[in-house]
Every structure is written in structure tokens, then in C-alpha cells.
Design a protein around this nucleic acid. Structure first.
Lengths: 210, 210
DNA sequence: GCTTTATGTAAATGAAGCTCACATGACATC
DNA sequence: GATGTCATGTGAGCTTCATTTACATAAAGC
């Protein structure tokens, strides 16, 4: 049942028909296999079955493709965080924990995206779209921080709270959270490490110790 | 007064005499200027004034040179952390704050080392020496965590404490702590963000709020 | 049909990583 | 002091890559 070129080696004419999309997927595959440094423009072209020059019709250069992968990563990331937050239901603290787990789950299940987003040395504002999606991801965290801050008696500044949680989550993800690529092994699940950290942190801000 | 080859463009014979050292420094320079990805073996050779093949007499390949740079970085890092900790004087909490600041200071003042250590995709155990120095750096943090944990009424597990603080520090350094290379700008100094975070965290563990 | 525009190809350039055969010289040993 | 050996550089060459330029093909509108 291969009537289209989705997935397989469909013969094609002079024009590919879906090169841009194919290249992005190939790039994602390659990044997943060999890291953001190992991915080459030429190999992505080979994977798509086109000449080495063809990708230049769709991306300015190698970095531009990388930025597009990162942008899609941030889109998926922001979506995941917003979904996990679910408007703070049933209450901000529970929702925050869900958000933290979603953060680490993304790093774990989408290491290729995560690498393109945070390890490929793509400038945060390589393109306006990239900047926008990155802001949206951080916005999800920021929104959560605001709700949690408002629920605490000490009323801490929401931005600070967001930055602390983001940094902790990112640090854990970068150091321990990527399967076999992790820098060190851990005596517990990264998710649990993060949950414990956030819990302690919130208690430090005066949350009731449940 | 240039009677030796230290520092300048001293004419040299067939043999360089100090190539390995020169290459490491050149690599560090290049990494600082163009990032870990932009550094090339060939350019390091040019900087040292030798042919492109010469470096292979001292390093197995490009990654091997990178690993050596990272190793030296971890050595300097571990030294800095141990010095800052200063055996916990005058008391663990004060010393821990000093250690946290030293962590971020290193990331800020030695971005090239920090990049080689954490962004160059050098496996943590690329060489036994690298692993050893990395362990020593973490050991400094671990020692500090033990002393602080022992000083707290709740007696939290020291390893957990070390991992939380390391992750927070690394996350802040990676996201905000590298000057213009930072991913986002911050309304405060990274050092202050870290200090506030650790303070809140320790309060969550039952430390007296000073 | 004819033009315009988008999309690919071929060929070439320049740089990089790496290897191999060979050159040079530092040093030890007779 | 001649000689042999080992460490350290050189030169040339191979392969891969990024990127550009001129040209080819086809899809769409006229």
C-alpha cells in the first residue's frame, strides 16, 4: 500500500515535491543518531535522495536548517508544557509538578529536538519564529510560576520562581536526563530528583508541607 | 628581549619544542572566539606555525585535543571550587555560598573552558584523566553538601543536596551565565539568582532563616 | 504555446580531518 | 665523534563537507 512517498523510497521525478519537510525530518533523525555536531547538510540531502545543492533552495545554510529544527522543537516543547500545566488544574502545585515532569519527559523522549534547541549553539533569536516559540515555552513556565507564587503566603516574585525552576529543570535535564547520553548516572529518576527539589524549594518559600 | 619563544613569534627550527602545550592554548583561544564547534584542528596547527599533520603526533584526533582542553578545564574548575570551599570555613553555609559564586565565576571568566567541558559533546569518560578531574570537581560539591547537610536539623541526604545545587548552578550557568552568549537576558546577576535559590532551598530543608 | 517562477542538477572551489611515506634532529651509546 | 634510534615535523594525497554558479526541468499562469 505504498501509493504515496510517505515513509518509503517512492520513485520521484525531477522535483521531489516535499523536500523541505523531508529534510527537516532527516536532520532530526541524524541529530538523534550522531548528535547536533555530527549532522551534515550533505547527508540530509542524500537521505532525501537529492543532490547536495538542492537543500539550498529551502534553507539558507546548514545553520538555517538547524534553526528550523530547533524552532519545531520549541513548538512541541511549548505545547507539551502548556498541556501539562492545563491551566493549573486541579491546583497550581499539582499542575506545577506535572509541568516539571513534562519538561524532563520531553528531554528524554525527544533528545534530538532537545539537542537542537539547547546544544547546537543556535542563537536564541536566529529567526523571529525561533525566538517566538522559545518565548512561548518560557511563557508557559512563567504562567505557572505566577499562579504558584500567588498561592503562596510569602508572595515571592513570579519571575524569580520561574527562573529557579527552569534552571533546575534544565540543569537536571542537561546533566542527567538524556538516557545513555547523560553525563553521570543517578541513583534515582531525574523526574524524582526534580520533584523533590521543587518541593523543598516551595517549602522554603513557605508552602504548607502537605 | 625576546631570547626565547615564549609568547611571540620566535623563529624555530624543524622541531617546535613545545607543540603540545602550544596547541592546547591555541585550541582554548579558538574555542573562546568561535565556540567549541568552530574550532578546527588545522587552525590550531596554523596558530602554532606547524603543518596540519603535526598535531597528530600529540593528539589522536580533534576530539582528543578537545578532551585534553576539557580535562584541564575540570582541573582548574575543581581547584577553584576547592579553594572557594576552603574546608567549610568559617561555617558551612557561608562557605557554600562562596562555592556557588565560584561556580558561576568560573563559567563567566572561563567560557572557553566551560564550553569545552559542557558543550563540546566530549563524553565524560573520554579519557581516564578527564573522568578523574570531573569526579574531583563533583567531589568538591559533594563534600560541601555533606557538611551543610550535617548542619541541618532535618539531616537530608547529602547526595541529593549536592545534585540539586549542582543542577541549579549548571542550569543557571548554561542558560544565563555566559555574558553575551547567554540564551536570555536576566533582570539580575546570575550569582544573585543562584544565591537566592540556594537560600530558599536550604530554608525548605529547615535552615534557620538568619 | 510562451513566459515566469520554483525547484533540482552538475560541476567546481576551498577547507577540513586524517593517513602515509619520508625528513630532521635530539639523544644515547659505543 | 660517528652511528643508530626514536620522537617529532613535513608534504602530498584522499575523502567529505559547505557553499556557489551556471544550467536544466517542470508547474502554473497567461
Amino acid at each position: 500500500m505504498s501509493w504515496s512517498k510517505s515513509g518509503g523510497e517512492a520513485p520521484r521525478g525531477y522535483h521531489h515535491g516535499n523536500l523541505k519537510e523531508t529534510l527537516v525530518r532527516a536532520a532530526l533523525d541524524l541529530i538523534g543518531q550522531k548528535g547536533p555536531g555530527g549532522f551534515t547538510f550533505a547527508e540530509a540531502a542524500r537521505a532525501a535522495g537529492v543532490s547536495p545543492a538542492a537543500p539550498y533552495r529551502h534553507f539558507k545554510d546548514r545553520d538555517d536548517l538547524m534553526a528550523e529544527v530547533a524552532r519545531r522543537g520549541f513548538t512541541a516543547f511549548a505545547d507539551a508544557l502548556e498541556t501539562a500545566w492545563d491551566k493549573g488544574r486541579p491546583d497550581p502545585r499539582v499542575a506545577l509538578e506535572r509541568l516539571g515532569r513534562a519538561y524532563l519527559a520531553f528531554a528524554r523522549t525527544e533528545p534530538a529536538y532537545y539537542a537542537a534547541m539547547f546544544e547546537a549553539n543556535v542563537p536564541a533569536d536566529a529567526t523571529p519564529e525561533l525566538r517566538a516559540e522559545g518565548d512561548r515555552a518560557f511563557g508557559a513556565l512563567r504562567t505557572a510560576a505566577e499562579a504558584v507564587a500567588a498561592s503562596l503566603p510569602s508572595r515571592p516574585p513570579a519571575l524569580m520562581l520561574a527562573l529557579h525552576i527552569w534552571s533546575l529543570a534544565h540543569g537536571i535535564a542537561d546533566l542527567f536526563g538524556r538516557g545513555d547520553k547523560a553525563r553521570r548516572s543517578l541513583p534515582m529518576a531525574p523526574e524524582d530528583l526534580l520533584e523533590a527539589g521543587v518541593l523543598i524549594y516551595l517549602q522554603g518559600l513557605g508552602a504548607d508541607p502537605r
